[in-house]
Simulated assay, not measured.
Amino acid sequence: MTREIAMEYGLMIAVAGAVFLFALLKWQQVKVILFRLMLTAKSMAKDAILNSGQEQEEWVLEKAYQHLPLWITLWMSKENMRKLIAYLYELAKDYLDDGLINQSQKSIR
């Protein structure tokens, strides 16, 4: 009986690990998509297609809902997506100033 219980616990741990790994990999994919969209928005701003930071943010938000998997867009509200985009933007600025994520860039917001 104890061997069966140990096998059940082992199976539950393996499933939990697989779910965690899946979520981690999907999170990395979401970040890549959002960073690409942010870079595209900055390029469009440089070409005077998007004029303000607000226009860039709205463009990224709109495109994120088009490019991200459906289950993420159903799960995450636009306001939470906006917060995630702002967080990743601040993270990218922090990394780009000195190559470290060390909060050396102060948030303007």
Score class of each variant (00 low, 15 high):
residue 103 Q to M: 04
residue 74 L to G: 06
residue 36 R to K: 11
residue 63 K to F: 02
residue 35 F to V: 12
residue 36 R to G: 08
residue 62 E to R: 11
residue 88 L to W: 06
residue 16 A to V: 08
residue 67 H to E: 13
residue 82 R to S: 12
residue 12 M to N: 15
residue 32 V to N: 10
residue 78 K to D: 15
residue 109 R to E: 14
residue 10 G to N: 12
residue 101 I to N: 03
residue 30 V to R: 06
residue 17 G to I: 08
residue 3 R to G: 14
residue 65 Y to Q: 09
residue 25 L to E: 05
residue 103 Q to L: 07
residue 105 Q to M: 12
residue 88 L to K: 04
residue 107 S to V: 10
residue 93 K to M: 04
residue 57 E to L: 11
residue 80 N to H: 12
residue 101 I to P: 00
residue 57 E to Q: 11
residue 102 N to I: 09
residue 76 M to I: 15
residue 75 W to F: 10
residue 30 V to S: 03
residue 83 K to I: 06
residue 61 L to K: 07
residue 21 L to F: 08
residue 80 N to R: 10
residue 99 G to M: 05
residue 10 G to V: 05
residue 37 L to S: 03
residue 96 L to E: 09
residue 87 Y to T: 07
residue 61 L to D: 01
residue 43 S to W: 11
residue 22 F to S: 10
residue 47 D to P: 04
residue 51 N to K: 13
residue 34 L to T: 10
residue 27 W to G: 08
residue 94 D to Q: 03
residue 62 E to P: 02
residue 33 I to V: 15
residue 29 Q to I: 12
residue 43 S to Y: 13
residue 101 I to A: 06
residue 42 K to E: 15
residue 95 Y to V: 04
residue 74 L to D: 11
residue 87 Y to R: 07
residue 3 R to E: 14
residue 37 L to I: 08
residue 65 Y to P: 00
residue 47 D to T: 10
residue 47 D to R: 13
residue 92 A to N: 01
residue 11 L to E: 15
residue 74 L to K: 14
residue 61 L to V: 06
residue 79 E to S: 05
residue 105 Q to P: 00
residue 31 K to E: 12
residue 32 V to D: 13
residue 63 K to C: 05
residue 80 N to M: 15
residue 62 E to C: 01
residue 78 K to W: 05
residue 11 L to I: 13
residue 91 L to R: 01
